[in-house]
Design a protein around this nucleic acid. Structure first.
Lengths: 164, 164
DNA sequence: TCATATATGTCAACATGGCTGACGTAAATC
DNA sequence: GATTTACGTCAGCCATGTTGACATATATGA
């Protein structure tokens, strides 16, 4: 009944605590995407382009199907963005060897350059937050966020290549 | 030069570690917003409406200016969403007493009902992740994410009412 | 071999939610 | 009394999501 000391018993979850957790996610995401968005605008691109460039860079040779599963958008939405990236020479497509229906996606050197430029600020931001918070906090960050991800993608995290 | 054991020395930040941190944020945010988005669609609303409802519920009597500072969008973008919410009876505006130029924003009972419905799933998701990860992990989650937020908003977190 | 399923692409139309620019009003402040 | 501030509004643009329909090439299984 009495007020609860947050530090000693944080698993008695007050509405305040949960709201703080929600807001942290909102503010962090908002500030995390601001700088890349500004850079993308110079290229006539948007956040969707960054996501594609990021995940293609992360998983070279990824298929369109796999990319769709990660982004959870429709193939039409992806196609529009992908077409622009291919046309402008940031991504190249190669036919799959085992399955020739597949278009395997790779960053071109130009694409890698942009990827680095875009993600640079995010990496620095994460690195700074990690360093300031310390090793134990990093482990906590990872386990809480992993717990918020739907089961189907939890396994995808921290594996260099999704099952193909 | 040799490979680094992540557990014992996580502050030697490999590119892999940073990318994992980035992806955790992306996946968590993606899955965190999916359910509310689906509910909003039934009302003809979008994610922007949720954000407004959320922060008005969080800070009853918030001014338009304060809300703009939180959302970091233009007043035109906010106005569009706000007008719909007021017209449809989810939010009501009262003239400020000290400063009569202000329009103080409040949720109507109908607005509160929707807020609960929308945020319910997010609260449950956070609560589950918190419980599974444990108290120490929660503290880590909080401190890392707080470190990623721009300075100007860091102080806003965990205060029921922004300075007005 | 033939039917079916899969991977991918494409066209068209629509909605949400950002943005810029311009302009207007009422109230506070210097 | 001039200026600043809080707020609103109209108009138009763009990025990015959606649904629905249809096409093609390839893989796979009966």
């Amino acid at each position: 009944m009495a007020d609860v000391n947050r530090g000693s018993n944080p698993l008695f979850l007050r509405d305040e605590d949960l709201r703080e957790g929600i807001e942290l996610l909102f503010f962090a995401y908002r500030d995390f995407t601001a700088r890349p968005d500004a850079i993308l605008a110079d290229y006539g691109f948007g956040r969707a382009h960054h996501r594609v460039i990021y995940f293609v860079g992360r998983h070279p040779g990824i298929t369109v199907k796999e990319l769709l599963a990660i982004l959870k958008i429709t193939k039409q939405s992806l196609a529009r963005v992908l077409r622009q990236l291919v046309t402008k020479g940031f991504i190249e497509q190669r036919q799959g060897e085992q399955d020739r229906r597949q278009r395997l996606l790779y960053l071109t050197p130009k694409g890698e350059e942009l990827e680095t430029k875009l993600t640079e600020n995010q990496r620095a931001r994460i690195a700074r937050a990690y360093r300031e918070a310390g090793a134990d906090a990093v482990a906590g960050y990872r386990s809480v966020l992993a717990g918020m991800v739907d089961d189907e993608d939890r396994e995808r995290l921290n594996r260099p290549r999704p099952a193909s």
